[in-house]
Measured scan of single mutants.
Amino acid sequence: FDIYVVTADYLPLGAEQDAITLREGQYVEVLDAAHPLRWLVRTKPTKSSPSRQGWVSPAYLDRRL
């Protein structure tokens, strides 16, 4: 999967189903980028939180090589 970094805090609107909150600087794996406005991502697990999966706007993501 492609690795992206979150460029700004992402707080989903209440109406968005299956969306997750992301923090600036967080790394995520993009699982599904087929839709231009919503990408399915999975967060990297940390010592304090397990990995999470949900939909985010790709405008908040920047690809890492």
Rank of each mutant, 00 (worst) to 15 (best):
F1H: 11
F1R: 10
F1V: 09
F1D: 07
F1K: 09
F1Y: 14
D2H: 11
I3E: 08
I3S: 05
I3R: 04
Y4N: 01
Y4I: 02
V5W: 07
V5M: 10
V5I: 13
V5H: 05
V5F: 07
V6I: 05
V6M: 03
V6W: 01
V6P: 00
V6S: 02
V6Q: 00
V6H: 00
T7D: 02
T7S: 07
T7G: 04
T7Q: 05
T7N: 12
T7P: 01
T7E: 02
A8L: 08
A8R: 14
A8D: 06
A8N: 08
A8K: 15
D9K: 05
D9V: 04
D9M: 04
D9C: 04
D9F: 04
Y10A: 03
Y10H: 07
L11H: 14
L11T: 15
L11W: 14
L11P: 15
L11A: 11
L11R: 12
L11M: 12
P12H: 07
P12S: 08
L13E: 14
L13I: 11
L13D: 15
L13K: 12
L13T: 15
L13R: 11
L13C: 10
L13S: 15
G14D: 15
G14I: 13
G14Q: 13
G14R: 11
G14M: 12
A15S: 15
A15C: 09
A15L: 11
A15N: 15
A15E: 15
A15Q: 14
A15W: 14
E16A: 10
E16V: 08
E16M: 10
E16I: 09
E16K: 05
E16C: 08
E16T: 09
E16N: 09
Q17H: 13
Q17R: 11
Q17A: 13
D18Q: 08
D18K: 05
D18N: 08
D18R: 04
D18S: 08
A19P: 07
A19V: 09
A19W: 15
A19F: 12
I20W: 08
I20C: 03
I20A: 03
I20G: 03
I20M: 08
T21R: 11
T21L: 11
T21H: 13
T21V: 12
L22W: 03
L22D: 00
L22Y: 01
L22P: 00
L22M: 04
R23E: 10
R23A: 08
E24I: 14
E24N: 08
E24K: 15
E24R: 12
E24W: 09
E24F: 11
G25P: 01
G25M: 02
G25V: 01
G25Y: 03
G25L: 02
Q26G: 03
Q26N: 05
Y27Q: 10
Y27V: 13
Y27I: 15
Y27G: 03
V28L: 03
V28R: 00
V28W: 01
V28D: 00
V28I: 04
E29G: 02
E29R: 06
E29T: 08
E29W: 15
E29Q: 10
E29K: 05
V30K: 01
V30R: 01
V30H: 00
V30E: 00
L31V: 08
L31F: 02
L31H: 02
L31I: 13
L31W: 03
L31Y: 02
L31K: 02
D32R: 04
D32E: 08
D32P: 00
D32T: 04
D32K: 05
D32V: 08
A33M: 14
A33F: 10
A33Y: 12
A34K: 12
A34D: 10
A34P: 05
A34Q: 14
A34Y: 08
A34R: 15
A34I: 08
A34E: 11
A34S: 15
H35E: 10
H35F: 07
H35N: 15
H35C: 07
H35Y: 08
P36G: 06
P36F: 05
P36D: 08
P36L: 05
L37E: 15
L37V: 07
L37I: 07
L37Q: 11
L37S: 12
L37R: 08
L37F: 10
R38E: 04
R38Y: 09
R38G: 03
R38L: 11
R38H: 07
W39T: 00
W39F: 03
W39P: 00
L40D: 00
L40E: 04
L40W: 11
L40Y: 11
L40N: 02
V41H: 01
V41P: 00
V41S: 00
V41Q: 00
R42G: 02
R42K: 09
R42Y: 03
R42D: 01
R42T: 03
R42E: 03
T43Y: 06
T43W: 08
T43Q: 02
T43K: 02
K44Q: 14
K44L: 15
K44V: 15
K44G: 06
P45G: 12
P45Q: 09
P45W: 06
P45R: 08
P45S: 10
P45A: 13
P45M: 06
T46M: 07
T46E: 10
T46L: 06
K47T: 12
S48H: 14
S48E: 15
S48I: 11
S48F: 14
S48C: 09
S48Y: 13
S48Q: 12
S48T: 13
S48G: 15
S49Q: 14
S49E: 15
S49G: 10
S49P: 02
P50E: 09
P50I: 07
P50W: 04
S51P: 09
S51C: 04
S51N: 03
S51E: 08
S51I: 10
R52V: 15
R52T: 11
R52A: 10
R52H: 10
Q53L: 10
Q53I: 15
Q53N: 05
Q53R: 07
G54V: 11
G54F: 10
G54M: 09
G54L: 11
G54P: 00
G54Y: 10
G54T: 05
W55R: 02
W55K: 02
W55V: 03
W55Q: 02
V56H: 00
V56P: 00
V56T: 05
V56S: 01
V56E: 00
S57P: 14
S57I: 05
S57W: 03
S57A: 07
S57N: 15
P58N: 03
P58K: 04
P58D: 01
P58W: 03
P58T: 05
P58M: 04
P58H: 03
P58F: 02
A59D: 13
A59E: 13
A59Q: 12
A59F: 10
A59N: 11
A59I: 12
A59V: 11
A59R: 09
Y60S: 04
Y60F: 12
Y60G: 05
Y60A: 05
L61H: 01
L61R: 00
D62E: 15
D62H: 11
D62K: 14
R63I: 13
R63W: 12
R64S: 13
R64C: 11
R64P: 15
L65M: 13
L65P: 14
L65W: 14
L65K: 09
L65D: 14
L65T: 14
